[in-house]
Design a protein around this nucleic acid. Sequence first.
DNA 1: AGATAGATGATAACGATTATCGTTATGTCA
DNA 2: TGACATAACGATAATCGTTATCATCTATCT
Lengths: 129, 129
Amino acid sequence: MVKLTTQRQALLDIINASHRHWDADELARAMSDAGQSIGIATVYRGLAALESQGLIDSIQLADKKRYERADKAHHDHMVCTECGHIEEFSHQTIEQLQLAAAHEKGFTLTGHQLVMFGLCRQCAKGSES
Amino acid sequence: MVKLTTQRQALLDIINASHRHWDADELARAMSDAGQSIGIATVYRGLAALESQGLIDSIQLADKKRYERADKAHHDHMVCTECGHIEEFSHQTIEQLQLAAAHEKGFTLTGHQLVMFGLCRQCAKGSES
DNA sequence: AGATAGATGATAACGATTATCGTTATGTCA
DNA sequence: TGACATAACGATAATCGTTATCATCTATCT
Ligand SMILES: [Mn+2]
Ligand SMILES: [Mn+2]
Ligand SMILES: [Zn+2]
Ligand SMILES: [Zn+2]
Protein backbone atom coordinates (compact mmCIF):
# COMPACT_ATOMS: atom_id res chain seq x y z
CA MET A 1 0.00 0.00 0.00
CA VAL A 2 1.41 3.36 -1.06
CA LYS A 3 1.73 5.89 1.73
CA LEU A 4 1.18 9.60 1.41
CA THR A 5 3.92 10.59 3.82
CA THR A 6 4.84 14.00 5.15
CA GLN A 7 7.54 14.36 2.51
CA ARG A 8 5.24 13.37 -0.33
CA GLN A 9 2.50 15.67 0.89
CA ALA A 10 5.02 18.51 0.98
CA LEU A 11 6.13 17.79 -2.59
CA LEU A 12 2.52 17.68 -3.70
CA ASP A 13 1.75 20.96 -1.95
CA ILE A 14 4.66 22.73 -3.61
CA ILE A 15 3.67 21.47 -7.03
CA ASN A 16 0.01 22.33 -6.56
CA ALA A 17 0.84 25.83 -5.39
CA SER A 18 1.81 27.05 -8.86
CA HIS A 19 1.77 26.21 -12.52
CA ARG A 20 5.53 25.71 -12.69
CA HIS A 21 7.22 22.66 -14.10
CA TRP A 22 9.64 21.43 -11.47
CA ASP A 23 12.60 19.09 -11.68
CA ALA A 24 13.68 16.91 -8.78
CA ASP A 25 16.55 19.13 -7.76
CA GLU A 26 14.46 22.28 -7.68
CA LEU A 27 11.96 20.58 -5.42
CA ALA A 28 14.65 19.36 -3.05
CA ARG A 29 16.04 22.87 -2.88
CA ALA A 30 12.62 24.41 -2.35
CA MET A 31 12.00 22.12 0.60
CA SER A 32 15.45 22.81 1.96
CA ASP A 33 14.80 26.53 1.72
CA ALA A 34 11.53 26.01 3.55
CA GLY A 35 13.43 24.46 6.42
CA GLN A 36 12.37 20.93 5.64
CA SER A 37 15.32 19.19 4.06
CA ILE A 38 14.69 16.01 2.11
CA GLY A 39 16.93 13.33 0.62
CA ILE A 40 17.18 13.50 -3.14
CA ALA A 41 16.31 9.82 -3.46
CA THR A 42 13.15 10.47 -1.49
CA VAL A 43 12.24 13.19 -3.95
CA TYR A 44 12.60 10.86 -6.91
CA ARG A 45 10.69 8.07 -5.21
CA GLY A 46 8.00 10.44 -4.03
CA LEU A 47 7.52 11.96 -7.46
CA ALA A 48 7.25 8.53 -9.06
CA ALA A 49 4.70 7.49 -6.46
CA LEU A 50 2.64 10.65 -6.82
CA GLU A 51 2.67 10.36 -10.59
CA SER A 52 1.63 6.71 -10.55
CA GLN A 53 -1.37 7.73 -8.44
CA GLY A 54 -2.27 10.41 -10.91
CA LEU A 55 -1.69 13.16 -8.37
CA ILE A 56 0.89 14.93 -10.52
CA ASP A 57 1.83 14.97 -14.20
CA SER A 58 5.19 15.06 -15.89
CA ILE A 59 6.88 15.94 -19.13
CA GLN A 60 10.13 14.39 -20.30
CA LEU A 61 12.45 17.02 -21.69
CA ALA A 62 15.76 16.28 -23.35
CA ASP A 63 17.82 16.12 -20.21
CA LYS A 64 15.38 15.78 -17.37
CA LYS A 65 11.86 15.08 -16.29
CA ARG A 66 9.72 17.93 -15.01
CA TYR A 67 6.64 17.66 -12.85
CA GLU A 68 3.49 19.75 -12.69
CA ARG A 69 0.08 19.66 -11.08
CA ALA A 70 -2.38 17.18 -12.51
CA ASP A 71 -5.56 19.16 -11.93
CA LYS A 72 -5.51 20.72 -15.33
CA ALA A 73 -6.87 19.56 -18.64
CA HIS A 74 -4.42 17.78 -20.91
CA HIS A 75 -2.14 20.16 -22.72
CA ASP A 76 1.18 20.25 -24.53
CA HIS A 77 4.17 22.54 -24.22
CA MET A 78 6.36 25.04 -26.01
CA VAL A 79 9.81 25.52 -24.52
CA CYS A 80 11.85 28.66 -25.05
CA THR A 81 15.37 27.55 -25.95
CA GLU A 82 16.69 30.90 -24.76
CA CYS A 83 15.25 31.40 -21.27
CA GLY A 84 13.65 28.03 -20.55
CA HIS A 85 10.17 29.47 -20.23
CA ILE A 86 7.47 26.88 -20.76
CA GLU A 87 4.21 27.88 -22.35
CA GLU A 88 1.21 25.60 -22.37
CA PHE A 89 -1.31 25.11 -25.09
CA SER A 90 -3.96 22.66 -26.11
CA HIS A 91 -5.55 22.11 -29.43
CA GLN A 92 -8.47 19.78 -29.71
CA THR A 93 -8.08 19.22 -33.42
CA ILE A 94 -4.42 18.23 -33.06
CA GLU A 95 -5.43 15.67 -30.46
CA GLN A 96 -8.04 14.18 -32.70
CA LEU A 97 -5.78 14.02 -35.72
CA GLN A 98 -3.22 12.18 -33.60
CA LEU A 99 -5.76 9.53 -32.79
CA ALA A 100 -6.59 9.22 -36.46
CA ALA A 101 -2.92 8.93 -37.43
CA ALA A 102 -2.36 6.24 -34.81
CA HIS A 103 -5.37 4.27 -35.91
CA GLU A 104 -4.21 4.44 -39.47
CA LYS A 105 -0.93 2.77 -38.50
CA GLY A 106 -2.60 0.15 -36.32
CA PHE A 107 -1.26 1.72 -33.13
CA THR A 108 -3.14 1.53 -29.85
CA LEU A 109 -2.31 4.85 -28.23
CA THR A 110 -1.55 5.12 -24.55
CA GLY A 111 -0.03 8.59 -24.55
CA HIS A 112 1.81 11.20 -26.48
CA GLN A 113 4.00 14.21 -25.99
CA LEU A 114 4.23 17.20 -28.23
CA VAL A 115 6.97 19.69 -27.46
CA MET A 116 7.63 22.71 -29.58
CA PHE A 117 10.91 24.62 -29.40
CA GLY A 118 11.55 28.21 -30.19
CA LEU A 119 11.74 31.70 -28.75
CA CYS A 120 9.13 33.08 -26.42
CA ARG A 121 7.76 36.56 -27.05
CA GLN A 122 10.25 38.12 -24.64
CA CYS A 123 13.32 36.45 -26.09
CA ALA A 124 12.24 36.97 -29.70
CA LYS A 125 11.93 40.65 -28.95
CA GLY A 126 15.35 40.84 -27.34
CA SER A 127 17.13 39.15 -30.23
CA GLU A 128 15.95 41.38 -33.07
CA SER A 129 18.79 42.46 -35.34
CA MET B 1 36.40 23.37 -41.33
CA VAL B 2 34.51 20.17 -40.59
CA LYS B 3 35.96 17.05 -42.16
CA LEU B 4 34.02 14.14 -43.56
CA THR B 5 36.44 11.47 -42.40
CA THR B 6 36.44 7.75 -43.04
CA GLN B 7 34.67 7.11 -39.75
CA ARG B 8 32.01 9.73 -40.36
CA GLN B 9 31.43 8.49 -43.87
CA ALA B 10 30.97 4.98 -42.51
CA LEU B 11 28.43 6.18 -39.95
CA LEU B 12 26.58 8.06 -42.66
CA ASP B 13 26.57 5.00 -44.92
CA ILE B 14 25.13 2.77 -42.22
CA ILE B 15 22.41 5.26 -41.41
CA ASN B 16 21.54 5.84 -45.05
CA ALA B 17 21.33 2.12 -45.75
CA SER B 18 18.03 1.69 -43.90
CA HIS B 19 15.17 3.49 -42.28
CA ARG B 20 16.17 2.45 -38.79
CA HIS B 21 16.64 4.84 -35.89
CA TRP B 22 20.06 4.16 -34.44
CA ASP B 23 21.59 5.04 -31.10
CA ALA B 24 25.31 5.68 -30.65
CA ASP B 25 26.02 2.29 -29.17
CA GLU B 26 24.27 0.37 -31.91
CA LEU B 27 26.31 2.23 -34.52
CA ALA B 28 29.57 1.52 -32.73
CA ARG B 29 28.64 -2.15 -32.55
CA ALA B 30 27.60 -2.26 -36.18
CA MET B 31 30.95 -0.86 -37.23
CA SER B 32 32.74 -3.25 -34.95
CA ASP B 33 30.85 -6.16 -36.46
CA ALA B 34 31.82 -4.90 -39.89
CA GLY B 35 35.48 -5.16 -38.91
CA GLN B 36 35.96 -1.43 -38.53
CA SER B 37 36.06 -0.64 -34.85
CA ILE B 38 35.48 2.93 -33.74
CA GLY B 39 35.83 4.78 -30.45
CA ILE B 40 32.52 5.62 -28.81
CA ALA B 41 33.55 9.26 -28.42
CA THR B 42 34.21 9.39 -32.15
CA VAL B 43 30.70 8.11 -32.77
CA TYR B 44 29.15 10.84 -30.65
CA ARG B 45 31.30 13.53 -32.20
CA GLY B 46 30.69 12.22 -35.68
CA LEU B 47 26.94 12.09 -35.21
CA ALA B 48 26.89 15.62 -33.86
CA ALA B 49 28.94 16.81 -36.83
CA LEU B 50 26.78 15.00 -39.36
CA GLU B 51 23.62 16.33 -37.82
CA SER B 52 24.88 19.90 -37.72
CA GLN B 53 25.53 19.61 -41.45
CA GLY B 54 22.03 18.37 -42.02
CA LEU B 55 23.28 15.01 -43.29
CA ILE B 56 21.33 13.06 -40.68
CA ASP B 57 18.34 13.70 -38.43
CA SER B 58 17.68 12.75 -34.84
CA ILE B 59 14.93 12.26 -32.35
CA GLN B 60 15.36 12.62 -28.62
CA LEU B 61 13.62 9.80 -26.79
CA ALA B 62 13.32 9.59 -23.02
CA ASP B 63 16.65 7.96 -22.41
CA LYS B 64 18.68 8.45 -25.53
CA LYS B 65 19.04 10.18 -28.85
CA ARG B 66 18.42 8.19 -32.02
CA TYR B 67 19.64 9.04 -35.50
CA GLU B 68 18.12 8.44 -38.90
CA ARG B 69 18.69 9.44 -42.49
CA ALA B 70 17.83 13.01 -43.39
CA ASP B 71 16.72 12.40 -46.96
CA LYS B 72 13.09 12.02 -46.04
CA ALA B 73 10.32 14.53 -45.63
CA HIS B 74 9.68 15.73 -42.09
CA HIS B 75 7.73 13.26 -40.04
CA ASP B 76 6.94 12.37 -36.46
CA HIS B 77 7.04 9.06 -34.60
CA MET B 78 5.00 6.53 -32.69
CA VAL B 79 7.00 4.28 -30.38
CA CYS B 80 5.77 0.87 -29.28
CA THR B 81 6.31 0.65 -25.53
CA GLU B 82 6.33 -3.12 -25.79
CA CYS B 83 8.83 -3.95 -28.53
CA GLY B 84 10.43 -0.59 -29.26
CA HIS B 85 9.25 -0.53 -32.85
CA ILE B 86 9.14 2.96 -34.29
CA GLU B 87 6.51 3.88 -36.81
CA GLU B 88 6.66 7.08 -38.79
CA PHE B 89 3.83 9.32 -39.81
CA SER B 90 3.27 12.82 -41.05
CA HIS B 91 0.18 14.89 -40.99
CA GLN B 92 0.13 18.18 -42.78
CA THR B 93 -2.78 19.58 -40.85
CA ILE B 94 -1.14 18.83 -37.49
CA GLU B 95 1.94 20.72 -38.65
CA GLN B 96 -0.11 23.73 -39.65
CA LEU B 97 -2.09 23.79 -36.44
CA GLN B 98 1.15 23.72 -34.49
CA LEU B 99 2.32 26.83 -36.28
CA ALA B 100 -0.98 28.50 -35.50
CA ALA B 101 -0.79 27.54 -31.84
CA ALA B 102 2.75 28.88 -31.58
CA HIS B 103 1.83 32.12 -33.24
CA GLU B 104 -1.08 32.55 -30.88
CA LYS B 105 1.28 32.35 -27.89
CA GLY B 106 3.84 34.67 -29.44
CA PHE B 107 6.34 31.88 -29.96
CA THR B 108 8.81 31.89 -32.82
CA LEU B 109 9.11 28.20 -33.67
CA THR B 110 12.42 26.61 -34.50
CA GLY B 111 11.39 23.00 -34.17
CA HIS B 112 9.10 20.51 -32.56
CA GLN B 113 8.86 16.88 -31.69
CA LEU B 114 5.72 14.83 -31.47
CA VAL B 115 6.08 11.33 -30.08
CA MET B 116 3.15 9.04 -29.55
CA PHE B 117 3.37 6.00 -27.28
CA GLY B 118 1.36 2.83 -27.43
CA LEU B 119 1.25 -0.66 -28.81
CA CYS B 120 2.06 -1.47 -32.39
CA ARG B 121 -0.25 -3.73 -34.35
CA GLN B 122 1.83 -6.79 -33.53
CA CYS B 123 2.04 -6.19 -29.80
CA ALA B 124 -1.61 -5.17 -29.49
CA LYS B 125 -2.54 -8.45 -31.11
CA GLY B 126 -0.30 -10.46 -28.80
CA SER B 127 -1.70 -8.90 -25.64
CA GLU B 128 -5.39 -9.57 -26.22
CA SER B 129 -7.08 -10.99 -23.16
C1' DA C 1 59.82 18.77 -44.64
C1' DG C 2 57.59 21.68 -41.22
C1' DA C 3 53.46 23.97 -39.55
C1' DT C 4 48.56 24.01 -38.66
C1' DA C 5 43.87 22.49 -37.85
C1' DG C 6 40.91 18.95 -36.99
C1' DA C 7 39.94 14.23 -35.76
C1' DT C 8 40.70 10.04 -33.14
C1' DG C 9 40.55 6.88 -29.14
C1' DA C 10 41.22 5.75 -24.38
C1' DT C 11 39.53 7.18 -20.41
C1' DA C 12 38.01 10.43 -16.81
C1' DA C 13 34.24 13.27 -15.64
C1' DC C 14 29.41 14.66 -15.53
C1' DG C 15 24.47 14.87 -14.56
C1' DA C 16 20.22 12.65 -13.93
C1' DT C 17 18.31 8.78 -12.09
C1' DT C 18 18.10 4.25 -9.73
C1' DA C 19 19.79 0.63 -6.50
C1' DT C 20 21.42 -0.73 -2.00
C1' DC C 21 21.05 -1.02 2.76
C1' DG C 22 20.67 0.02 7.46
C1' DT C 23 17.41 2.84 10.02
C1' DT C 24 12.90 4.83 11.05
C1' DA C 25 7.96 5.64 10.77
C1' DT C 26 3.33 3.82 10.30
C1' DG C 27 -0.57 0.61 10.17
C1' DT C 28 -2.59 -3.94 11.81
C1' DC C 29 -3.78 -7.10 14.97
C1' DA C 30 -3.42 -10.01 19.26
C1' DT D 1 -0.86 -1.18 24.28
C1' DG D 2 2.85 -3.78 22.25
C1' DA D 3 4.90 -6.44 18.63
C1' DC D 4 5.35 -7.36 13.97
C1' DA D 5 5.06 -6.39 9.05
C1' DT D 6 5.50 -3.19 5.54
C1' DA D 7 6.77 0.76 3.37
C1' DA D 8 9.51 4.99 3.31
C1' DC D 9 13.65 7.57 4.43
C1' DG D 10 18.40 9.21 3.70
C1' DA D 11 23.14 8.62 2.70
C1' DT D 12 25.64 7.01 -0.72
C1' DA D 13 27.20 3.77 -4.37
C1' DA D 14 26.16 2.50 -8.90
C1' DT D 15 24.37 3.03 -13.63
C1' DC D 16 23.86 5.04 -18.10
C1' DG D 17 24.13 8.16 -21.78
C1' DT D 18 26.93 11.73 -23.02
C1' DT D 19 30.78 15.18 -22.92
C1' DA D 20 35.53 16.74 -21.68
C1' DT D 21 40.58 15.85 -21.61
C1' DC D 22 44.66 14.99 -23.67
C1' DA D 23 48.16 12.75 -26.02
C1' DT D 24 48.65 11.10 -30.67
C1' DC D 25 47.36 10.99 -35.78
C1' DT D 26 46.30 12.73 -40.31
C1' DA D 27 45.30 15.50 -43.95
C1' DT D 28 46.43 19.87 -46.07
C1' DC D 29 49.01 24.04 -47.01
C1' DT D 30 53.65 26.70 -47.45
MN1 LIG E 1 2.22 21.95 -18.31
MN1 LIG F 1 11.96 8.67 -38.43
ZN1 LIG G 1 12.36 32.95 -23.60
ZN1 LIG H 1 5.39 -3.51 -30.61
